[in-house]
Amino acid sequence: MKVRQISVFLENKNGRLAEVTRLLGENNINLRAVSIADTADFGILRLICDKPDAALKLFHENNFTAKETDVIGVIVEDKPGGLAHVMDICFKNNVNIEYLYSSLMSHENNAVEIFKVEDIDHGLEILEKNGIKAIGKF
């Protein structure tokens, strides 16, 4: 299962993140996972929320550049070596990971890691074959 991630372009300016989170809060959109990729003069906020369509619409209405990407919410055992196990499978099967971050959710006492892989269909197939589960909905 794929998960819908929304990315928002942010300048490195005071208050931009406050503005984004305020908008989400005021519109009753709940964050499930969030991360920021930053460079010298801009950042990309990546988030997963409970109402992606509403969030995207909200960003566009407020003049943010935002777009949707599919990612994988990988269920990882919450114990030492849990992530290493998934990584090993990815490495051995040529699943290239562009980036990953942790979600705020847990799933049946397991952790949920957000993976962006080069080829998502290939990635999902490999994970499934190796008994790794991905969640479909937050």
Binding site: Q5, D38, F42, T65, A66, K67, E98, Y99, K116
Partner: peptide, 15 residues
């Protein structure tokens, strides 16, 4: 200005 036409979720693409 960063437009949807070339915005990406990956920094390397924007770079």
């Amino acid at each position: 200005e960063v437009e949807e036409s070339f915005f990406s979720d990956e920094t390397k693409e924007l770079e």
